[in-house]
Deep mutational scan, measured.
Amino acid sequence: GLTEEQKQEIREAFDLFDTDGSGTIDAKELKVAMRALGFEPKKEEIKKMISEIDKDGSGTIDFEEFLTMMTA
């Protein structure tokens, strides 16, 4: 499992990506986040990433899903 410290770091990354503070990361926010990390993702790639992570089919990534992605 994760230490509380690791969870906190992932939470901070999540909050950075969640620019509108909605508690979820949408495609637009993910794209901005990827760019910040030096990637140039295409729209299809973003969609694919979200569909792989987005277990509940909401079209957005919540913290639990993000946590799973970061620790996979």
Rank of each mutant, 00 (worst) to 15 (best):
K55R: 08
E44D: 08
S51F: 06
S22R: 05
I61E: 00
D54S: 12
A27Y: 11
G59V: 04
I46Y: 06
K47V: 09
E65G: 11
K48I: 09
D56P: 04
I25F: 02
M49S: 03
I46R: 01
I53D: 03
E4S: 10
Q6T: 05
P41N: 07
K31N: 10
E45R: 07
K31W: 15
D15P: 01
A27N: 03
E5I: 12
F17N: 03
T19R: 12
D15E: 07
D18V: 04
G21K: 13
I61Y: 04
M49E: 02
L37Q: 02
K48Q: 10
M70S: 01
E52I: 11
P41V: 15
E40W: 12
S58D: 12
I61L: 07
R11M: 03
M34L: 12
F39E: 01
F14P: 00
D26T: 11
A27E: 08
M69E: 01
R11P: 00
I50W: 08
I61G: 00
L67F: 07
K28P: 03
E52L: 14
I53N: 07
A72C: 15
I10T: 03
T71C: 13
F14G: 00
K48E: 06
T3E: 02
M69K: 02
E52P: 02
E4I: 09
T24Q: 07
Q6P: 01
L30R: 00
M34F: 11
I10Y: 13
M69S: 02
L16V: 05
M69G: 02
D26M: 09
K47E: 15
K28C: 13
I50E: 03
R11I: 02
M70K: 01
S58F: 07
E5R: 12
S58C: 07
E29F: 14
E44P: 05
F14K: 00
R11G: 01
E40K: 15
S22W: 03
I50P: 01
Q8Y: 11
D54N: 09
F17E: 00
A33T: 03
E40P: 03
S58L: 08
E40N: 15
P41G: 14
F39A: 02
E4Q: 11
I10F: 12
I46N: 01
K48P: 03
M34P: 00
T60S: 07
L67W: 09
F39S: 02
S58W: 05
M34D: 00
E12C: 15
T60F: 06
D54E: 09
D26Q: 08
F39L: 08
A72L: 15
G23H: 04
T24F: 13
A36S: 09
F17T: 03
L30M: 06
D62S: 15
E64Y: 10
I53T: 04
G59P: 04
D56A: 07
T24M: 05
Q8R: 11
D20T: 07
M49V: 05
K42T: 15
Q6F: 13
D54R: 05
K55Q: 09
D56L: 10
T3A: 05
M49F: 07
L30K: 00
K42N: 14
K43Q: 13
I46K: 01
G57F: 13
L37C: 15
T24H: 07
K48C: 15
R35H: 06
K31T: 14
T71M: 12
T60Q: 10
T68H: 12
A27L: 14
I25Q: 00
A72M: 14
K42V: 09
E65P: 01
M69I: 10
M70F: 13
M49T: 02
E64Q: 10
F39H: 07
F14H: 00
R11Y: 03
K47D: 15
G57W: 10
S58K: 12
K42C: 14
L37E: 01
K31I: 15
F63A: 01
D18S: 04
E4A: 12
M49D: 02
I46H: 03
M49C: 12
M34G: 00
E29W: 14
I10H: 03
M70Y: 12
L30T: 01
T3G: 04
D62C: 09
K48T: 06
E64V: 06
D56R: 11
E45A: 08
E5Y: 09
I46F: 11
F66Q: 00
T3P: 03
I10E: 00
D20G: 04
E44C: 14
E29Q: 13
T24Y: 12
K48F: 05
A33H: 02
K28T: 07
M70L: 12
G23K: 03
D20E: 04
K28F: 10
A72H: 14
I46T: 04
E29S: 12
M49R: 05
D26A: 08
V32S: 15
T3H: 04
L2Y: 11
E45M: 13
L67M: 07
A72G: 07
L37V: 04
A72R: 15
D26N: 09
I61M: 04
K31D: 13
A72E: 07
I53Q: 04
F66R: 00
I25T: 01
R11E: 01
I61F: 10
E65S: 12
M49I: 11
K28I: 07
M49P: 02
A36T: 07
T71H: 05
D54H: 09
K47L: 14
